[in-house]
């Protein structure tokens, strides 16, 4: 691949540039999640390629894992569909690379669990991910206690390690969570798994406020956000809104590959309007 051609924006700064631009626009970012290779590699690539035009500001791509213990049924099934379709870590990095051929600006974050990375080999993974154009990582089962495993080595490759803060992250623990955090903070809106419980806006606003007091990183809110109205409400007090399960459901319920692409992009357009309305108030 031609590194020189895509070099102008280096990894961690793609995220920084995105959040800086949106700050100037005075609106929150829309972060969209889909699982790599769901329902198959080609469709998945087509979905990804259309996301920026539909209004996604940051793209999260799930690395499928057989045992996703922090995910609800929707994303569990997406991972199985992808794996059955032959998706692997190598193919996921190929997907990122293919996306980067056409889009050198949109920040791209890989999300998942540690074991597939562990198996691939951390050093090899980071080198290949950086080369493919990955900007950040969210690895659900790597708390700060294990920063030596991946978080610190990722920094060496210019890849941000995005930390999750949850309703159980109290004042005593928060500094630990913020140490070594980069890219943005992911505020998990509810205790639980992805795509099940709807967040309580008031509680989430309090959490976001507590994070802002202690960190200058942009704060994204995710888990349980499905509609443009929710995105708008949460976007009023956060820097980014993450939508995942609702998009994955659109893929699951589509009858054709083309239908899946259309359904995801249609929903992203609605959500994008939601975050833009959040900025205008």
């Amino acid at each position: 691949m031609n590194a020189a051609k895509e070099n102008p924006v280096n990894a961690a700064t793609r995220l920084d540039a995105c959040f800086a631009a949106l700050k100037a626009e005075q609106r929150p970012a829309l972060v969209t999640y889909v699982t790599a290779g769901d329902p198959d590699f080609e469709t998945s690539l087509e979905i990804l390629q259309g996301l920026p035009a539909a209004g996604a500001d940051v793209i999260e791509i799930g690395m499928p894992f057989s045992d996703p213990m922090a995910d609800g049924p929707t994303i569990q099934k997406a991972a199985l569909r992808a794996l059955e379709g032959g998706q692997t870590m190598t193919r996921t990095l190929e997907l990122v690379h293919a996306f980067r051929q056409q889009d050198s600006q949109t920040p791209l974050v890989l999300m998942g669990y540690y074991n597939p990375i562990h198996r691939y080999g951390v050093a090899r993974f980071l080198a290949d991910a950086a080369r493919a154009g990955v900007d950040g990582l969210i690895v659900v089962d790597l708390p700060p206690e294990h920063d030596d495993e991946l978080c610190l080595p990722a920094r060496e490759h210019g890849i941000a390690f995005i930390r999750l803060a949850t309703p159980t992250t109290d004042a005593k623990r928060l500094p630990r969570v913020l140490d070594n955090a980069s890219g943005f903070l992911y505020c998990v809106s509810v205790n639980g798994i992805t795509g099940v419980r709807a967040p309580d806006f008031h509680d989430v606003e309090g959490m976001v406020g507590r994070l802002r007091e202690r960190s200058r990183l942009p704060v994204a809110v995710g888990f349980g956000i499905r509609t443009a109205a929710q995105a708008q409400a949460i976007g009023r007090f956060s820097d980014a809104v993450v939508v995942g399960s609702a998009l994955v459901e659109a893929i699951e319920s589509a009858e054709t590959r083309h239908g899946a692409v259309e359904a995801v992009h249609g929903l992203v357009r609605e959500l994008a309007e939601g975050v833009r309305r959040a900025g205008n108030t």
Binding site: L142, P143, E145, H146
Partner: peptide
């Protein structure tokens, strides 16, 4: 103290569970 038996063991869990496990 970190729950490691050599390179094995540890606390590879989501952040939500960390305070409880501590």
């Amino acid at each position: 103290a970190h729950g490691m038996f050599g390179r094995f063991g540890g606390r590879f869990v989501p952040e939500t569970l960390m305070p409880l496990i501590s």
